[in-house]
């Protein structure tokens, strides 16, 4: 045999390797040629029959051929394994069919909004606190400087509990009509500095319509420390509103009245839709009312046995449903409680 034979063999191997269209056939070609009983192996066996003077050169040529073939086989295998074998026609799948999605449950937008609000205030150092939904008139009204039998209690259309013993109790039981009673529980339970937010359910005797529900959610905030001022209130809420509604949000404070704060303010944010230019959503004013706030009334601090000469604070409260409706564009508050599948799956 001559070296030209070896060149032909190499050509033959290269052709066979190219013909292999998947990794398995390439492996087969490789073992047919390079395996223990492969064609190249038999060449080596023939070496022994050669005269000693030719043996060395011939041996080197065969070895080179083997190395070249092995390298080619590896390269072809790598190439084939990169693309993988083509599936048999029966195994071809319709990749445009929808994926087998595991059903993923959705968060309710009210709880999601509440979580978002809580997280924003957590960044500002306000921790979450909770309190009972069944309250007494003391915590819901009296301790918050809302005298019973006073028009100031009127906006809080309150559900009182049906209680045969009501007459014997110092204060009647009711469903809290705002989250503010938790302010009092928190202040009674610890000394300033205090920074809390209180998310939770509240109850009013409003019949359900597009913008009212008898049960809805509020988030209350309270900060009581030394030297807290109205300027701090404005600062904290302005930052929080930017976080909640977007960095460009402007905030406006208007004087208002709440029995438990003095001075009190209502807070408007620049309209989310028009940015302040005026549109139907903001009734052309460019502003949307989102919360009420003020400096904690000294009387409230006194009820909590906190010295109003030493400490001051601010409080704020907002309706979670209202914020969610504004942020998400929900047109009717009743959507939140109807459990309609097509509503729940939008979030």
């Amino acid at each position: 045999m001559s070296d030209t034979d070896l060149a032909a063999l190499q050509q033959e191997f290269t052709t066979a390797l190219a013909a292999a269209k998947d990794a398995a056939s390439a492996e087969r070609v490789k073992s047919d040629w390079l395996g223990r009983t492969g064609k190249l192996r038999s060449l080596t066996e023939q070496l022994g029959k050669l005269p000693p003077d030719q043996k060395k050169a011939r041996g080197k040529a065969i070895n080179d051929l083997k190395l070249a073939c092995e390298a080619a086989a590896e390269a072809r295998l790598r190439e084939l394994s990169a693309s993988g074998p083509k599936a048999a026609p029966a195994d071809v799948i319709d990749v445009t069919l929808p994926g087998a999605r595991p059903r993923l449950g959705r968060r309710h937008p009210i709880y999601a909004t509440m979580d978002e609000m809580r997280a924003i205030f957590a960044k500002l150092g306000f921790e979450a606190a909770y309190g009972p939904e069944i309250e007494t008139a003391y915590y819901n009204f009296v301790s918050l400087n809302i005298p019973l039998d006073h028009p100031a209690a009127e906006p809080f259309d309150t559900w009182y509990l049906d209680d045969p013993d009501a007459a014997t109790r110092p204060y009647r039981f009711l469903l809290r009509s705002h989250t503010s009673p938790v302010q009092m529980h928190v202040m009674e339970g610890r000394k300033p500095p205090i920074r809390v937010v209180v998310p939770g359910k509240v109850f009013r005797t409003d019949p359900a319509d597009a913008s009212h529900l008898p049960v809805f959610h509020q988030m209350e905030g309270l900060m009581v420390e030394e030297n807290v001022t109205f300027a701090d209130l404005k600062g904290v809420l302005s930052i929080a509103m930017k976080e909640l509604f977007g960095a460009k949000t402007e905030t406006r404070f208007r004087p208002s009245f709440f029995p438990f704060t003095e001075p009190s303010a209502e807070v408007d944010v620049s309209c989310l839709l028009c940015g302040g230019g005026g549109c139907p959503a903001c009734k052309g004013s460019g502003w949307i009312e989102v919360l009420g706030c003020g400096m904690v009334h000294p009387r409230v601090l006194e009820y909590a046995k906190i010295d109003p000469e030493k400490y001051s604070g601010f409080a704020f409260g907002m309706g979670v449903e209202r914020i969610a409706m504004l942020k998400l564009g929900v047109p009717d508050i009743r959507h939140f409680i109807r459990s309609h599948p097509l509503f729940l799956r939008q979030w």
């Binding site: 205030f121 957590a122 960044k123 500002l124 150092g125 306000f126 921790e127 979450a128 606190a129 909770y130 500095p193 920074r195 900060m223 420390e225 807290v228 109205f230 300027a231 701090d232 404005k234 600062g235 904290v236 302005s238 930052i239 905030t251 406006r252 404070f253 208007r254 004087p255 003095e262 001075p263 009190s264 303010a265």
Partner: peptide, 26 residues
């Protein structure tokens, strides 16, 4: 409050000079 509301709430600075605080998770 009387002075502030007539003078203008917008003249009160918007200054968050509250010190940082921890808010331990509930």
């Amino acid at each position: 409050e009387e002075i502030a509301r007539v003078h203008g709430y917008d003249r009160i600075p918007t200054s968050p000079r509250v010190h940082i605080a921890l808010a331990p998770p509930n």
